[in-house]
Computed example of a mutant assay.
Amino acid sequence: MTVTSDITVLQAIRQAGAEVLSSCEQGICGTCLTPVLEGTPDHRDSVLTDHERSAGNCLVPCVSRSCCDRLVLDL
């Protein structure tokens, strides 16, 4: 699925017909924290620490985007 830069990862997941548990959808609660299997997330949340962001193995999809052409999540 091609995702444009004006939608969040969570919106793209839902458009693809999948679902991720979410609550605040503002990047502050961490309910939707999702493992990243491949790619580089563009973190825009207030949940992850700098260390967790640099590790790149999870993201908060309700506010995040991708820094690369392909982002694979463990849904």
Rank of each mutant, 00 (worst) to 15 (best):
Thr2Ala: 10
Val3Trp: 05
Val3Phe: 01
Val3Pro: 04
Thr4Arg: 09
Thr4Glu: 11
Asp6Ile: 06
Asp6Arg: 00
Asp6Tyr: 05
Asp6Phe: 02
Ile7Pro: 03
Thr8Asn: 06
Thr8Tyr: 04
Val9Cys: 06
Gln11Tyr: 03
Gln11His: 04
Ala12Val: 06
Ala12Glu: 11
Ile13Glu: 01
Arg14Pro: 01
Arg14Val: 12
Ala16Cys: 12
Ala16Ile: 09
Ala16Phe: 05
Gly17Asp: 10
Gly17Met: 12
Gly17Ile: 11
Gly17Pro: 00
Glu19Ile: 12
Val20Gly: 07
Ser22Phe: 15
Ser23Pro: 00
Ser23Glu: 15
Cys24Gln: 05
Glu25Met: 10
Glu25Asp: 12
Gly27Pro: 04
Gly27His: 01
Ile28Phe: 10
Cys29Thr: 07
Cys29Pro: 02
Cys29Tyr: 05
Thr31Ile: 10
Thr31Val: 14
Cys32Pro: 08
Thr34Trp: 01
Thr34Cys: 09
Thr34Ile: 07
Pro35Thr: 10
Val36Asn: 07
Val36Trp: 01
Val36Met: 09
Glu38Phe: 15
Gly39Lys: 06
Pro41Val: 10
Asp42Ile: 11
His43Arg: 03
His43Asp: 01
His43Cys: 04
Arg44Pro: 05
Ser46Cys: 11
Ser46Phe: 15
Ser46Thr: 07
Val47Leu: 04
Val47Ser: 03
Thr49Ile: 03
Thr49Gly: 05
Thr49Arg: 04
His51Phe: 14
Glu52Pro: 07
Ser54His: 10
Ala55Cys: 11
Ala55Gly: 02
Gly56Asn: 03
Gly56Lys: 05
Asn57Thr: 15
Cys58Ser: 14
Pro61His: 00
Cys62Arg: 00
Val63Met: 04
Arg65Cys: 07
Arg65Val: 08
Arg65Phe: 06
Ser66Tyr: 06
Ser66Met: 08
Cys67Lys: 14
Cys67Gln: 14
Cys67Asn: 14
Cys67Asp: 13
Cys68Asp: 14
Asp69Cys: 07
Asp69Met: 04
Leu71Gln: 03
Leu71Ser: 08
Val72Arg: 11
Val72Asn: 09
Asp74Trp: 03
Asp74Asn: 13
Leu75Asp: 02
